[in-house]
């Protein structure tokens, strides 16, 4: 069973059409990079998968369950088993690091599994900052808090909207390694948006190129570089 299946998604805002029939399948444990010029509709696509937005037409299947059908939201965001990392993180500025994780866990059960919080913080090197609020964290720590919040529930699917932009190279490489480790240990499917060919080279199994509302090419990096179907594919992927 596929972790995620998208069928013929269409979406417009007012006048313009952003998505014009997008289909995609992602397996468990698979890492997929989405590329496209800015304004191509990458964020919109992730938001539709997460259930934060509905398409005008098309379907979203998550773990074999029909989650969105046309404009109908059949499964609300919090019941989709998705971890989402927003481009600007969307940390809860009024909560401490551990309150972030506790809030996520409490939404599921009455008792909060403290051991789970501790191990997640440990996993991401945030244990020393458990009592701090976001504004007391450095840029990299904020990024890891967003990651911890998305991971504490062990989601089947991780959606990352440009998680690597605004990071220096060492930190970027470290984050790449973290994602690969997460994949080894917990096997979620990971779908991420990026602009940087380096991100693709270092951690993607599959590349999806979104252009003018459609997926114009899809496959492993080497395949795309070997036989680009459109000049823009080369532009986006070549260093």
């Amino acid at each position: 069973m596929k972790t995620l299946v998208l069928k013929d998604l269409h979406k417009g805002f007012g006048e313009g059409t952003v998505l014009k029939g997008v289909g995609l399948e992602v397996d468990r444990g698979e890492i997929v990079a989405i590329l496209g010029v800015s304004g191509a509709g990458k964020s919109t696509l992730l938001r539709i998968i997460a259930g934060l937005e509905v398409p005008d037409q098309g379907q979203v299947w998550i773990g074999g369950e029909l989650a969105t059908s046309g404009r109908r939201l059949l499964l609300p965001p919090h019941r989709r088993g998705i971890g989402f990392i927003f481009q600007n993180l969307g940390l809860w500025e009024h909560m401490t690091v551990e309150e972030h994780l506790a809030f996520v866990l409490r939404a599921r059960s009455k008792t909060v599994d403290q051991a789970r919080i501790r191990s997640t913080l440990e996993f991401l090197g945030l244990s020393a900052h458990a009592k701090r609020k976001p504004f007391q964290l450095s840029g990299g720590e904020r990024q890891r808090l967003a990651l911890a919040r998305a991971l504490v529930e062990e989601p089947e699917l991780l959606l990352l909207d440009e998680p690597f932009s605004n990071l220096d190279l060492p930190r970027k490489k470290k984050l790449h390694r973290e994602f690969l480790r997460i994949r080894e240990e917990k096997h979620p499917a990971i779908l991420y948006v990026t602009h940087d060919p380096l991100d693709v080279k270092l951690m993607a199994d599959q590349v999806v190129v979104l252009h003018e509302g459609r997926i114009i090419q899809q496959g492993p990096l080497e395949a795309l570089l070997g036989a680009p179907s459109h000049p823009i594919v080369k532009e986006l992927l070549e260093i």
Partner: peptide
């Protein structure tokens, strides 16, 4: 974004 991040885990 803070509210949407909340929606990912809670009603």
């Amino acid at each position: 974004e803070e509210e949407e991040a909340g929606l990912m885990t809670a009603p």
